[in-house]
Computed example of a mutant assay.
Amino acid sequence: MDSLYLYKPSHVLPAVFAVLVGVSLMLHIYQNFRYRFWRVNFWMFWGGTIFTTGWILRCVSSSYPSNLNIYIAQTVFIYAGPPIFSAAEYNQLGRLMYYLPMHAPFNPGRTVTFFIHLGATVEGLTAAGASLFATAHGANDMQQHVTGDRLISVALALQAAIECIFIAMVGLMHYRCARAGTLPRNVRQLCIMLYGTSTFVLIRCIARAIESFETETTTTCNSICRAVLFHEWFLYVFEAAPMVFYTYWINIVHPGRLLPSDKRRYLDPDGVTERMGPMWADTRSLWMKIADPLDIGGAITGNSNSEAFWMRPSDWEVAPGGSFSEGTATNVRSKSASGTATPEELLSGSRSGAMEVQLSA
């Protein structure tokens, strides 16, 4: 039977990237246990699992290039990984907002929920479009091919827009900290990491959008179309490589080293002391919360309806174990007289974190 690829697929490169993403996945699992950061970084585990599976299937597909089922599966899994990775960023931004409530423009919990729901929409469109695209490629169904391409294009445009909004919110937090004269090293490192990883996602979105646009609208295949359709390097340079850099960057600058795992812990306006506060409290009526869940009206007018609990530092106890802003605190469970935490305690923490991941960052 004829190959479903328009080129001879490499057997080696999918295996190389499967190993690279798989190693990063193992590191994320280790660090999430070490720093007890599953509630925030669960999506790095899930996205890594999906993305690694995609490259393993790609490796198998390269040996059976005429097998439609394997071809469809590898296409869907490779497309589905990056939007899931982005969800980890949203949780990290939410945890940063809990850590710096005085600089957060919106309710941290609802902000994360907003981004997660948009991300789920991107994921659904991506999976549906990739499935239709891959199936049409094998069945030579032109209409189905166009429909799949359009769904992917919409998903890519939406994800790019979300990333731009995300970068703007990180930039706003960064700016407010700098303006207040309280930009500790841990916050600066996290912001730089989020700028960088979001840039990799945008590079991937732009490249995939070019691919989708060229394959959908070009009647005679030009040089860009040929580079996309007839050369495998485009996939590895603009899809695989940016996402590998993305996952390793978050491993190197792991947010579990920079932010507390307990979202009640916040940084005092003095930029040094950390306290255990009541978290975000929305003082508006129920119908106002429903009508404007993010309190956008308050953000526009500058009259936030959240309780400014950080203005009453004497009401809240100082957090134990030093300060993340000074690099003297850690999420690693401290040793006691009986030794370190048991594996059962760590596993229990990861299970509860996975259940609460969407709303807790």
Results as ranks from 00 to 15, higher is better:
residue 27 L to D: 09
residue 82 P to I: 05
residue 39 R to N: 07
residue 99 Y to E: 03
residue 131 S to T: 15
residue 57 L to F: 15
residue 42 F to C: 03
residue 58 R to P: 04
residue 52 T to R: 06
residue 79 Y to E: 15
residue 57 L to E: 13
residue 85 F to I: 03
residue 131 S to M: 11
residue 137 H to M: 12
residue 71 Y to S: 10
residue 70 I to G: 05
residue 73 A to M: 15
residue 93 L to H: 01
residue 77 F to D: 08
residue 39 R to H: 15
residue 120 A to F: 10
residue 112 V to R: 00
residue 106 F to M: 00
residue 124 G to K: 05
residue 58 R to G: 09
residue 37 F to R: 01
residue 85 F to A: 03
residue 143 Q to M: 09
residue 26 M to E: 10
residue 95 R to A: 02
residue 34 R to Q: 10
residue 58 R to V: 07
residue 59 C to A: 15
residue 30 Y to T: 09
residue 47 G to A: 13
residue 31 Q to P: 04
residue 141 D to A: 12
residue 57 L to C: 15
residue 42 F to T: 02
residue 53 T to L: 15
residue 103 H to Y: 15
residue 37 F to A: 04
residue 117 H to T: 04
residue 53 T to S: 15
residue 40 V to I: 09
residue 84 I to F: 00
residue 28 H to A: 06
residue 101 P to W: 03
residue 28 H to Y: 09
residue 71 Y to K: 08
residue 26 M to T: 14
residue 62 S to Y: 14
residue 45 F to I: 14
residue 64 Y to K: 10
residue 48 G to L: 09
residue 78 I to K: 06
residue 101 P to Q: 05
residue 54 G to K: 11
residue 107 N to P: 00
residue 64 Y to C: 08
residue 28 H to D: 05
residue 52 T to G: 05
residue 123 E to G: 02
residue 38 W to R: 05
residue 84 I to S: 01
residue 82 P to F: 08
residue 74 Q to W: 11
residue 117 H to K: 07
residue 60 V to G: 06
residue 122 V to T: 03
residue 102 M to C: 10
residue 102 M to Y: 14
residue 111 T to K: 02
residue 101 P to G: 04
residue 141 D to E: 14
residue 44 M to K: 01
residue 105 P to G: 09
residue 71 Y to F: 15
residue 62 S to P: 07
residue 49 T to P: 06
residue 43 W to K: 00
residue 135 T to M: 09
residue 131 S to Q: 06
residue 69 N to R: 13
residue 108 P to K: 00
residue 118 L to K: 02
residue 88 A to R: 02
residue 96 L to G: 00
residue 98 Y to S: 00
residue 64 Y to F: 13
residue 125 L to C: 07
residue 33 F to C: 13
residue 113 T to P: 00
residue 108 P to H: 03
residue 83 P to A: 04
residue 80 A to L: 12
residue 66 S to C: 12
residue 79 Y to L: 12
residue 75 T to F: 13
residue 48 G to V: 08
residue 108 P to F: 01
residue 107 N to S: 10
residue 85 F to Q: 02
residue 28 H to E: 08
residue 35 Y to T: 03
residue 76 V to A: 08
residue 120 A to P: 01
residue 81 G to A: 11
residue 38 W to Y: 12
residue 49 T to Q: 10
residue 68 L to C: 06
residue 96 L to T: 03
residue 113 T to D: 01
residue 26 M to L: 15
residue 63 S to N: 13
residue 73 A to L: 14
residue 72 I to N: 07
residue 36 R to Q: 15
residue 43 W to S: 01
residue 125 L to A: 07
residue 52 T to Y: 05
residue 29 I to E: 08
residue 112 V to D: 00
residue 109 G to R: 14
residue 98 Y to R: 01
residue 61 S to Y: 07
residue 110 R to C: 02
residue 71 Y to N: 11
residue 118 L to A: 06
residue 135 T to A: 09
